[in-house]
Write a protein that binds this DNA or RNA. Sequence first.
DNA 1: AGCACGCCGACT
DNA 2: GTCGGCGTGCTC
Length: 802
Amino acid sequence: MIAAVVVDVPSGSVNKTFDYRIPVELEGWAEPGMRVIVPFGPRKLQGFILEIKEDSTVKGMKNIIEILDPLPVLTSELIELGRWLAENTLSFYITAYQAMLPAAMKATYEKAFQVLVPEKLTDPIASLFSANNEINVSDITNENPHLLKTLQNLAKEGVLDVVYKVKNKANKKRVKFVSLASKDLAKDTIQQNQKKAEKQKALLRELVNRPSGEYPLQEILTETGASHTTAQTLVKKGILHIEEKEVYRDPFQGRKMKPSKPLPLTENQENAIKPILHSIENNNHQTVLLHGVTGSGKTEIYLQSIQSVLDKGKEAIVLVPEISLTPQMVNRFKGRFGSAVAVLHSGLSIGEKYDEWRKILRKEVSVVVGARSAIFAPFQNLGIVIIDEEHETSYKQEDHPRYHARDVAIWRGKFHSCPIVLGSATPALETYARAQKGRYQLAELAKRVHSNPMPEVTIIDMREELKNGNRSMFSKELMDKLKTGLEKGEQSVLFLNRRGYASFILCRDCGYVAHCPHCDISLTFHKRYGELKCHYCGYKEGTPSVCPSCSSEHIRFFGTGTQKVEEELAKVLPEARVIRMDVDTTSKKGSHEKLLTAFENGEADILLGTQMIAKGLDFPKVTLVGVLAADTMLHLPDFRASEKTFQLLTQVSGRAGRHELEGKVIVQGYDTQHYSIQLASKHDYHTFYNHEMQARKLHQYPPFYYLGLLTFSHPDLMQVVDASDKAATYLSKRLSHDSLLLGPVTSPIARVKDRYRYQVMIKYKNEPELRVWFEEIIAHFQKDKDIKDLQITGDLNAQTLM
DNA sequence: AGCACGCCGACT
DNA sequence: GTCGGCGTGCTC
């Protein structure tokens, strides 16, 4: 039998399968989807079997060296999905397959010299091998390049052998368990009157006192103070039995989970869950957009939908943005479905992720809660996929394979004939537009549960505050409300929107921000050249010294941070206990959770933070939410700026008044008249949607057009300009009349790691050949020997132009 | 991607 | 003469 294998080499020239013979001893054992080790040229590489076939036309086939998995790690569905993924994201097959599996399964390679004929080794070299029969090449290359040459020559002469090793990044965790081999023998030993062997007796006593069974050796040793050798001695005496067993690392060890029962649904919820249950019942694929205001009880709908999927013996995937994958979130699922839940997120170690993943493969769990890549959970009987906060941009992976979890989810939904639920209070424009068109089914939750009112939002214009002599970063009203909350013993959340800082120019008097006349995008301030530039079309102008709008001199670029806010808060409200959450205070593992728990337990009055406190948090005692600098993001050079601002303000406001106490939100900013701020304060998604859709239509952005993006990078600016120019010409001759070609222009991030970046953008509605053209362009420059080191990445559906 | 092979200039 | 630089092409 022959196996078609993709090998672990992410390169265009080997982006295909290679045929290998399956040796007789592995016959009937090898299956598609298993990882194997195969010879590839002089090396050994890891690869995936994609297909098993009878024969092959290839001459001089080699044998598979080893099969790495007892079970396929890629199901036939995932093999097919990977092919689709690679082809639609312009990635290599191997890259797509590796993205579906936990990092632990990716191979690492090592090359080493081994001694073949020890007698022929002379001394300086011989001593190198005295400790070990082998030397890793990676250990010598940096230190002594000359030695490498010598060893290579010895290898040529046949004195040394070159071996290639393939390893895994992480392995199954094995733990030693101890049990009594003979209880009687143990008791006898304890009875012995000698003063000797006290540690041995202590160890045995511990085991005798416990109910008979196996215990982790380490636990027993720490308990009794005995050492490994003690245990080993007892094994030799035949009193103890030690066995190594494979265990799962448990990232949730010792955590208490509050069990929860299904809550009665409100009438609103009943209506919203209907289409989902209907799709589950009839086993048909349907994408349902669950548009529900913050606090409207979307999670309960998720939970009950999952329950009905589990009742049918099927499985569920829940995607949550990385940032809101908090213990609070996880507990809601673990509380309802207990040990049937696996969790996959970046906070886990490589090994922990591997273990959680294996629980899925072995069908030990039927619910997965995780970030983006959890969409590849190897379930074989998938009954539902839920994507919470579906508008989040983090669902799009920004390096290869550049997939959007939403697209993958829908692919799997079609494959399994099951519903895909997209939940959000502020759906992405693309999603809502599709729901309007009828491609997705729309389910709306317009009211909060228990008829809690939406929080009242007050917008404060900081320009007015400045005119009235308030130069602090807190408006008078926010100060007053913070004080009142403090007196009443209620909690407040202060949200500082840090994205978009320091890159734009703002007039402190009138709120003027420089915009590009051609693109309706704010200009980016380039400190180095002292000029303002548009990252979309390349337009530029000088930095004004006075505001072009009101002639004020208070025009400058803008910036502040959470630390500064904390300091100022300490000055004006010294009695307030503040917890600050940002990248600095949450970098340590578990600190995120600790801070939130502290806040939940009322150990602080004010929670101050950035993006990471905007989503999903639910604290009953929070009555006030303050948003500092609500409008900074509006000035990012991003056509989604308004949408993101609206989403963020809506999310943050949603943290207030979710329970008995009524909530209040104060939003501070400069450009407070902007529709995304005004409409967010009125909780009016629909008007925002209509308004924003008009703007997108006018400027030819998604969802009216798809964005194709080709990014070129090279250390030499001239090469990038030249290559991107050629590509643009190539495309311009082929694009249909409905498509628009923009650029080439410098990327918003013009240089990364000493490489200049240029991009060509295509706005298109229907361009079935675009993928092929991108491939051709990439292949063309790959072959061109005059331009080495030119990197090109193509994205057929870019979410951002950065 | 890595590795070998092969073809040229610089030094023992 | 040989060592070692990099350009070229292949990997079932």
